[in-house]
Amino acid sequence: MEDQSRRDLFKIIGSSMVLSAAGSGVLSPALAQHVHAEVAAVKSLSGGPNYAPKGFNRHYFNTLRKLADLIIPKDDHSAGASDAGAAEYIDFLASRNAELLAIFNGGMAWVDGYMRKTYGSDFLTAKPDQQTALLDKLAYTKNHTPEVAAGVPFWTWVRNMVVDAYYTSPAGVKDLGFVGNGAMAVFSVPKEAVDYVMSRSPLA
């Protein structure tokens, strides 16, 4: 797309015109497509090592990053949750909601307490198999024991919010293969996708 069109585009998008009479001042599909290309580029939402947590102290923020990457790890398919900014997302909201902050501070303090009692070190410094041993107890109903019951509500919170954060990030959208939010001149459905589904269905 030519630079001139791009400038027009952003002028239109940013326009404070009150009136958008029919047929004027509206986005053409080509221009709309360009907006999507601009914003769909996968980028990291992580604040990086210099990020200053707004709600949590540094220790809990780092614990949260670790938990996020255990819940949604980097794999050969896509990036992990910490790179997708999951910890920053939760930190931002916790800084604005005291109830949420207490849930996460309390939950991570419980996790550290459990780890110290069981392994003699907090969650962050424990060995990877010790970390996952706790998560296995929290994550599966069949493993729930009275000993970990107090950690389960926090687990539900952190898992839900990490999932939310990840799949609303560029990395998560790429992982899912969402290719929409664009502009099409004609809507069409690939035959390959139809054939795939029909052949697997009882209605073939």
């Binding site: 819940i71 609303t168 959208v173």
Partner: peptide, 23 residues
């Protein structure tokens, strides 16, 4: 659909676990 906050809360609740399995 474009993923949104809450889009996968149902599956997350049903499918237990974490890590690459959850993904």
């Amino acid at each position: 659909n474009m993923p949104q906050i809450g889009s996968f809360r149902g599956v997350a609740a049903k499918a237990e676990g974490y890590g690459t399995k959850l993904k």
